[in-house]
């Protein structure tokens, strides 16, 4: 469904990604793991159209979206939940969610989708009129996910969804991702929490210094000595 081919990305003079190729088949969860600064967020932002790649191709649903602006990418059904839960703090939960349905593909069904989100995340319904900035960290993460789903994406890229959450909440968020995936959503999961994301994903890529160092089925990677040493502390 999503295919990235030999992607190079530069931030000014600094090279962020070199020859990165990944693939996310429809209906699967694909994990991208790696240390801080390995280029995970850069990769997500490049796919989302927020950074222009220097070389390479990005294909989504067999459409070449390389160099597209982020609003067009989003409207094609490629959503993202950005790092750090970028909710609009001074807007209500409801307004935040409705903002998620600004893209043409989902605008007409925004009221129905709002109801769908409230059915899925009952906490958000309870907080309907509350300002998003007053929500707890976990609630904000749920709001960020729900807001993204308001655009009816077919693939969602999650950037560090567990960042700054308590262990219990991490499990809850990962559980949400699993549920969404069972309902047919393709997921690209970027995480520092290597064990949890490998357990969730069917396949994974290890990103090191902007290069794909390892790739394969999650189970194989989990058994790989290098992965175990570098990321699991075993």
């Amino acid at each position: 469904m999503l295919r990235v081919e030999a992607l190079d990305l530069d931030h000014g003079d600094a090279r962020a990604l070199t020859g990165v190729s990944i693939e996310a088949p429809r209906g699967e969860i694909v994990a991208i793991v790696g240390a801080n600064g390995a280029g995970k967020t850069s990769l997500i932002r490049a796919i989302a159209g927020m950074h222009k790649p220097t070389a390479g191709r990005i294909l989504f649903k067999d459409v070449d979206i390389t160099g597209w602006s982020s609003d067009r990418v989003c409207d094609l059904g490629l959503g993202q939940v950005a790092e750090g839960r970028q909710v609009f703090p001074t807007l209500s939960v409801r307004d935040n969610l409705l903002m998620g349905a600004m893209v043409p593909r989902a605008r007409a069904r925004r009221v129905a989708n709002l109801e769908r989100m409230y059915a899925m995340f009952s906490r958000l319904r309870e907080r309907d009129r509350q300002l998003a900035g007053t929500l707890s960290g976990g609630e904000q993460q749920m709001l960020a996910i729900a807001r993204c789903l308001m655009s009816e994406p077919e693939l969602v890229m999650f950037d560090e969804p567990s960042l700054g959450l308590s262990p219990a909440l991490v499990l809850q968020v990962l559980d949400i991702i699993r549920t969404l995936n069972r309902e047919g959503l393709t997921c690209l999961l970027v995480e520092q929490n290597v064990v949890a994301s490998l357990k969730l994903a069917s396949s994974a890529y290890v990103l090191e210094n902007g290069v794909i160092a390892l790739a394969g089925a999650s189970a194989d990677l989990m058994a790989d000595d290098r992965v175990r040493k570098a990321y699991m502390g075993i």
Binding site: D71, A82, L91, V103
Partner: peptide
């Protein structure tokens, strides 16, 4: 208007607005 809501999102957080598919520059 729809434009007014796009402005609101842009004013609140331009990066977040981009992430949810709003053409911030336009």
């Amino acid at each position: 208007s729809r434009l007014g809501h796009q402005w609101l999102a842009t004013r609140e957080d331009a990066e977040a607005a981009r992430a949810i598919g709003i053409n911030v520059t336009r």
